[in-house]
Amino acid sequence: MSNHAHIDEHRDDEGAKTGMWIFIFTELILFGGLFIVYSVYRYLNPAAFHLAAEELDTFIGTANTVILLISSMTIAMSISAIQYQNKKLTLILMGVTILLAVAFMVNKYFEWSGKISHGIYPGSPTLMEASQGEILFFGLYYAMTGLHALHIIIGVAFIAYVMRLVVKDEVQHDNFTILENSGLYWHLVDLIWIFLFPLFYLIT
């Protein structure tokens, strides 16, 4: 509300960051629920999980891990860059982050479409003939990497939005909490992948 706005407009950078961290905790717990399901079913079906994991391409998994780790570094660097008042470098680093995210998604697309063309997708006839452990493995694979991919998309949108603010000079060396927060979100995406990668690709 117009003449009511002065209430809203108190600026509290530390508060905004606290809020972001709490949000990140909720995201960790959200994925935590899936990790609980994963660990229980892996414990109950060790052989089938072992067998199913061999279907996944370790190379693509490793490549995507490298991509995400680098993108995490670039977004972290962009925060230093804005503190050094280097607007151009900030934008470049953020742009690189987004490009790497797109590369990740392209890889993911080829990986998923490869699986689907082999008839491995939830409810598919091929999968229904497989053992129950394999059905569970691929169900979790699609759900967890899918939810992770959704977070990548949200992260890209968030970073792109902050880039616009940087261009318009609304984010500057003394006012960059939102850039920090988008970075935190991006690291969260990285953090989850760090665990998804060994759990799905390295159990051979």
Partner: peptide, 22 residues
């Protein structure tokens, strides 16, 4: 605690719509 029920309900939705086994 709420995210746990969030993901659980989401799994029910996925199980009902996409036949993902949970």
């Amino acid at each position: 605690a709420t995210p746990i029920v969030g993901i659980t309900l989401l799994m029910i939705v996925l199980e009902r719509t996409l036949q993902i086994g949970f």
